[in-house]
Simulated scan of single mutants.
Amino acid sequence: MSSFQYAPKACCSRSAEISDAGFCGECGEPLIRCMAFQECHSVLDSTGKCPVCVRPELSLDAGAASTVREGGKLALPLIIRNGSHVGRPLFVTGLWTKEDDSHWTEIPLDFERLDPEAAANVGIRTGVLDHAGIHRIDVRIAIATRYQWREEAFVLTSSIVFPVESKDPDGPVTNITLTADQIGAGTTIYNPTRIEQDRSRGIETNTRAIPLKTQRADKVETDSGLRGYDDGKVVPRWVSFAWKGFAEEDHPEEGIILDAAGLLYLGRNAVGRAEDGNDARLVVNARDGSVSKLTGSISRQHFSFYTESGRLCLRVDSQFGLRVNGDAYGRTKTVTLHDGDVISPLRTHPDALKIKVTFEAERDNVTRIVLNRTSNA
């Protein structure tokens, strides 16, 4: 078993506009569309993030810079902007900062939703800077994109490195000299002291926002529970589904979800999307192998699978409901599924039809989900 490497190209977005296309007509890559494809018309990038819906921009307002000396504090006016160019809001669900080797501190926010191209200001103030030299502030921001009942959550990280001058006003200017452990892909060098000195000498300074470099904090996403499972495993959108115990004509070929909405439908109706068809058909068998009359208690489209924030989820579409591990769920309810969970589509006859969910993983990446059907009416 080998991991599938999803690598979309520019041509994939063009092919994705064909509603029933499952693969790119130019490069052959599978078309894994954003859950909000009808609005953003975008396929996911190689990390599973929609580059159109999830476009946060972090920056500092350089116009608010001032000298920073030993024993003082620094105010950092952070600007968070939703850079999406389509009508897709972005939700900021958390912001944390950490100075040098201190602990993470959550910054209270009086907003959550950012409409497209809207921005919000957050004031970050350091503690007392008790020594001259190089200081560093790390920033984590949790963001989410939402569509209908679904949400995809992510964490971005950034670092701001800045110098602190000596208390002695005639002392030497602190130069920024960074070692390898002080700088990274998400580090921005910020010199408010130099800006203030230039300003005092009449030199024109940049009053526009200074962009902050950011990078995806995938480990923080899983460690904080925003994505994946407690054991560190993550279910990507390109996970493969395998079918056991289903009649050959009642299930699709093994593979990833290629539906434009990212949903995998199961119900009484036959396989095929014409007239509310399903990806897999649910049939209850009697002991002699014939179709049991209990099959009539299964809705035409009974429930659906989808992935959300690195987890496998189930949505109940039937008015009759169903059970997961014996617990009953009604229509429109969503359930996060785990390795070994058992789905009973018939709430009043849970033993008549069961589907066991099994995860197969490489390291912490779930590459294959086996759906094993058993029926005993």
Results as ranks from 00 to 15, higher is better:
46 S>T: 00
46 S>E: 15
47 T>C: 04
49 K>N: 09
54 V>D: 04
55 R>N: 10
55 R>M: 02
56 P>F: 03
56 P>I: 04
57 E>M: 12
58 L>A: 07
58 L>D: 00
59 S>V: 08
59 S>E: 10
60 L>K: 02
60 L>T: 10
63 G>S: 15
63 G>F: 11
66 S>K: 14
67 T>C: 02
67 T>A: 10
70 E>R: 15
71 G>S: 11
71 G>H: 08
72 G>M: 09
73 K>T: 14
73 K>R: 15
75 A>D: 08
75 A>G: 06
78 L>V: 03
78 L>R: 03
79 I>R: 10
80 I>Q: 14
81 R>F: 02
81 R>S: 01
82 N>A: 05
82 N>L: 09
85 H>P: 10
85 H>Q: 15
87 G>C: 05
87 G>T: 05
87 G>R: 12
87 G>D: 14
88 R>K: 13
88 R>S: 14
89 P>N: 03
90 L>K: 07
90 L>W: 09
90 L>Q: 11
91 F>R: 05
91 F>E: 11
92 V>G: 06
94 G>S: 07
94 G>M: 06
96 W>F: 12
97 T>P: 08
98 K>Q: 14
99 E>A: 01
99 E>Y: 08
100 D>C: 05
100 D>W: 00
100 D>T: 11
100 D>N: 13
102 S>D: 15
103 H>Q: 12
105 T>F: 10
106 E>R: 14
107 I>K: 02
109 L>F: 09
112 E>I: 03
112 E>P: 08
112 E>V: 04
114 L>E: 12
114 L>Q: 13
116 P>N: 04
117 E>L: 08
117 E>V: 01
117 E>Q: 13
118 A>L: 12
119 A>W: 07
120 A>Y: 04
120 A>Q: 13
122 V>W: 13
122 V>P: 12
123 G>L: 14
128 V>N: 00
128 V>S: 01
128 V>K: 02
128 V>L: 01
129 L>I: 00
130 D>H: 02
130 D>V: 00
131 H>Q: 10
131 H>E: 14
131 H>C: 09
134 I>T: 04
136 R>F: 00
137 I>S: 12
137 I>D: 09
138 D>L: 02
139 V>A: 04
140 R>T: 01
140 R>K: 12
141 I>P: 00
141 I>V: 11
143 I>D: 05
144 A>H: 02
144 A>D: 06
145 T>P: 02
147 Y>F: 12
148 Q>H: 11
149 W>D: 10
151 E>R: 06
153 A>Y: 09
154 F>V: 02
154 F>P: 00
155 V>T: 08
157 T>S: 07
159 S>C: 05
159 S>A: 10
160 I>G: 03
160 I>C: 00
160 I>F: 11
161 V>P: 06
161 V>E: 13
163 P>F: 15
166 S>D: 15
166 S>H: 14
166 S>R: 14
168 D>S: 11
168 D>K: 11
169 P>F: 02
170 D>H: 10
171 G>K: 12
171 G>Y: 11
173 V>F: 15
173 V>T: 09
175 N>Q: 15
